[in-house]
Structures are given as structure tokens and as C-alpha cells.
Amino acid sequence: MNWLSRLLPGSNPALDPEQRAALDAIIALPPPDLARSHYETRYVVINAETGPMDGGGQRLLAVGAVAINQGLLHPADAYRAQLGSAPVDAMIGLVRFIARSPVVVFNAPFNQGTLERALEQNLGSAPDLDWIDLMVLMPSLFPERTTGQARMDAWLGAFGIDRLDHRDALLEALCVAQLLQVALARANAQGLASPRDLLDTQSSRKWLRGS
């Protein structure tokens, strides 16, 4: 079942009409063509900022997102939200910003996990998104640099990307977005020209690693 249909009227009574309308607008968007080239694709890079939950575990406090559209990072195409007292609006804002674009994170188990939980909690269900994890992808794109998965710091250092403020979800997303630009250039050089190619590479990599 398409994730969007789970967001259809009746599926979550907690949404007010305005929020409902916002989600309806996203339902109307055509799905992205994952076979098009990177330079015709809009990627959304997301970073989750978390804090400890009562009874253990982490909960989402804030989210920062930066788009790489047609290879370019533009300051106008960015999103940031604190969950605070209006977590539903924050999540709707995020979903609207993503607008069905493939989502890129560094360290999916953490980011994707946290985000999906928050979406489910606030919107009733987590949307089906195409998640790309640079932590998995980078070692296969740059085998000469490392033999296994490396921390984000190591990758940022390798490409001279400044980490401006690791406590700020948006600035962290900015770093990951710059890393994605490096990754896309290399992927292109290796013949991995589309988001579909990246997703395929990622699953075979995961499979190889047995994860």
C-alpha cells in the first residue's frame, strides 16, 4: 500500500482540516522519476537532532533539511523545525519540504529510525520514502579512501568540509549536503548516474555486509 493513502482522510483523526489539506497537496504530487540523472533530480538531505527520552532511547527534538537540486545547493531551498509544542506542523512542514524527493542522510539507522518514528507518532504513519545513506554509499564510491564504514568527521575531513556547528541540525544537514555533492560527482564518474543507481548500489552493499 502506498504510504500516502495511509494519510488519506479518516486514517488519522488527530489532524485538523488545514493540516489535512497540506497533506492532500503532497498526495497530488507526481512521484519522482528515479531513473533521471542526478543533475535533473532534487535530493533532500536531512539531519535529525535528538535528546534523551523518558525511559531511555532518543526522541526527535529538531530537524534540518537542505536540498541539492540539479547538483546545486541554494540557500532558499532549506528547512528547519523544532518539534516543540507543534510537532504535527513541524512534521507536515518536513514532508512538504521533502515533496517526495529521494532523502539522503548520513547514518540511516539513527536518522531514518528517529525520523520515521516521529512521523508515525505525529502523522499516524511514516511515509514510504527513498532513503539513501551516505554512510553506506561513501565507502563503495571511494574504495581508495577506506576499507569500511567511517564516521562522518572522517569523510568531512577528507573533503575539507567545515563542520560549522554539530549541535545545529540545519548546519549538520549542510555538511551532509556538501558531502552528497562530492558523492554525486564521483557516482557520475563511475556510471552511477541516477538516484535509482545509488539505491541499487546501496542495497547490494547492505546485502554484502549482511545488514
Binding site: 540557500p75 532558499a76 532549506a78 528547512y79 528547519r80 512542514g93 549542510l174
Partner: peptide, 14 residues
């Protein structure tokens, strides 16, 4: 566009 997020990125440019 989210103005607070854009402002942050513009500030890094500036």
C-alpha cells in the same frame, strides 16, 4: 521557503 533556515544558510555565505 523556510526563512529561518534560509537565513542561516545565507549567513554562512555572508
Amino acid at each position: 521557503m523556510d526563512t529561518s533556515a534560509s537565513d542561516t544558510l545565507i549567513r554562512t555565505n555572508l
